[in-house]
């Protein structure tokens, strides 16, 4: 019973995610696209819960839905890019080719999946063990022990990204970055 419930839930969420994804790329209005993106992210977060990854689901909502989509919305507002649908010529050979390629990719992936070629070493993080310590603690422990270095590097990456965004967003008064100010005056 629980299985059918979960499968039903999956199908519903998957439908929401796909529709929202299509909404992102086919909306004329960029604000609508951003909102569709939000729906897509939330649906995915719920799917994560379905996959027993509650911590990641929370992070997904916080980072993507909370930060990134809001950022997109800010920029949309700033540039006023809500307007007509800006799309390249639709019915041309390129589109046809892309659709065909997409189908090929889908077929390849699907075939591979259904033939069960995806396998690997089974780890120790079974749901039972995770249940003993709790999902957040399990991920946190892994993050701060085995993956400490990538974690720290990620923080450096974020810092660099932040600096980059600040530098790029700064308004240079007629000067180009790197030139002495005296010369620019």
């Amino acid at each position: 019973m629980a299985q059918q419930l979960q499968q039903g839930l999956f199908l519903a969420l998957a439908g929401v995610a796909v529709v929202a994804a299509l909404g992102v790329i086919f909306n004329r209005n960029a604000v609508h696209s951003a909102l569709s993106l939000l729906a897509n992210f939330v649906a995915l977060a719920m799917l994560y819960v379905l996959l027993n990854a509650q911590f990641i689901a929370i992070v997904q909502v916080a980072v993507y839905a909370g930060a990134i989509v809001v950022l997109f919305l800010f920029v949309v507002m700033l540039l006023g890019a809500g307007g007509e649908m800006q799309m390249g010529g639709w019915l041309n050979w390129r589109t046809a080719f892309i659709v065909a390629a997409a189908l090929v990719l889908l077929t390849l992936t699907g075939t591979a999946v259904f033939e069960g070629t995806i396998n690997g070493a089974i780890g120790t993080a079974t749901p039972e063990q995770i249940a003993q310590v709790g999902q957040t603690e399990a991920v946190g422990t892994a993050l701060f022990t085995d993956y400490l270095l990538p974690f720290e590097l990620a923080s450096v990456l974020l810092l660099v990204g932040m600096l980059g965004a600040v530098v790029l967003g700064q308004r240079w008064r007629g000067a180009i970055a790197g030139r002495p100010s005296g010369e620019a005056e």
Partner: peptide, 30 residues
């Protein structure tokens, strides 16, 4: 695969995505 590695990866991807959006949007504005 009963492994937490995948989740850690997702964590890292999110960090990269956040940076990418921040820088990308800054470039877009410029």
């Amino acid at each position: 695969l009963s492994s937490l590695t995948g989740q850690i990866f997702v964590f890292m991807v999110m960090a990269v995505a956040a940076v990418e959006v921040a820088v990308g949007l800054a470039i877009l504005i410029e």
